[in-house]
Design a protein around this nucleic acid. Structure first.
Length: 290
DNA sequence: GTCCAGGTGGTCA
DNA sequence: TGACCACATGGA
């Protein structure tokens, strides 16, 4: 089957790209090159909310379904954004700013490695490390305007890597965490092969991986497994909580009760808080430097 | 030079 | 539990 081009509604590429959930896209001369498994797509924003997708690699069985899963195409985001703005008035501005962001369902192993790498790190450096890992040890899946794209390395290859290899990729003190997490992958896969676990059980299992704490576990559950009932709290979401709810906004008990209020969309609320605070910060820096 | 980043592990009270 | 610190790295 497969398609040459298709249109996606309710998707803003730039916002999604900058919402801190995806580290594998490349922005090249105004278009986004998006790898999904071993398939490569070129995505172009045709208007405010519509995107045209073009297949760059060979047609393969099942890739349409993979594409739909990746972009979460069955969910009605317009309605969900409206609902969030309606039931949480304080978030209205953040909702309008973030509208167009979709929550991507990405490869679970890639999310594990990516978010272990993300702790106390910058998005640009996370991207660089992951791109280097793929380029050095993965398989080439395609190219665009002279730029080559690579898959995540095979498990056997990952297993052969040592701490030094990850240090060379800029992983810093997280290198041993990555090595340990890779060793844990077969058992993790075994755990998951018994059927999709409830979010709480998945989080609990992920927390057993060295270098994975509550925040990283929540991100893996969300972006790798599509669990929407999580609420990852990082430095930016902390700033947002303080911004909206004052000093007690960052207390664990308060966060927990807020998360409950945001359900079943707590993950999307978290995402738009993250995006809103970062964009607000960028705006403030821009005006300051004038 | 200093600060900070999609935090976590370890220690101590 | 909660508060504190160290952690490797490089861009702003």
């Amino acid at each position: 089957m497969g398609f040459r081009t298709r249109i996606i509604e309710e998707l803003d590429l730039a916002k999604t790209y900058q919402s801190g959930q995806v580290f594998s896209w490349e922005l090249i001369e105004g278009v986004y090159i998006v790898p999904i498994g071993s398939t490569l797509y070129e995505l172009k924003q045709v208007d405010g909310s519509r995107v045209e997708a073009l297949l760059l690699t060979n047609e393969e069985e099942g890739q349409d379904e993979a594409f739909e899963t990746y972009f979460d195409l069955k969910r009605d985001y317009r309605r969900i954004y409206d609902e969030i703005a309606l039931s949480h008035k304080e978030l209205a501005e953040a909702v309008e700013r973030a509208r167009g962001i979709r929550l991507l369902k990405q490869d679970e192993d890639e999310m594990l490695l990516t978010f272990i790498l993300s702790q106390n790190n910058h998005i640009g450096r996370i991207k660089k490390s992951m791109a280097g890992l793929k380029e050095l040890y993965g398989a080439k899946i395609g190219s665009y305007k002279g730029r080559d794209f690579y898959s995540l390395p095979a498990y056997e290859t990952l297993l052969s890597l040592i701490e030094k290899d990850f240090v060379n990729l800029g992983a810093g003190y997280r290198a041993p965490y990555l090595v340990a997490a890779i060793k844990d992958l077969p058992d993790l896969h075994d755990f998951l092969s018994r059927g999709k676990p409830p979010t709480e059980a998945l989080l609990e299992r992920l927390l057993e991986v060295r270098g994975v704490g509550p925040k990283v576990a929540a991100c893996i559950a969300l972006f790798g497994h599509g669990d929407w009932d999580v609420f990852p709290v990082d430095t930016w979401v902390k700033k947002a909580l303080q911004h909206y709810y004052g000093p007690e906004g960052t207390k664990p008990a308060f966060i927990h009760s807020k998360k409950r209020e945001f359900e079943p969309y707590s993950s999307l609320v978290q995402q738009l808080m993250f995006y809103h605070m970062r964009e607000k910060d960028k705006d403030e820096r821009r005006t300051k430097n004038q």
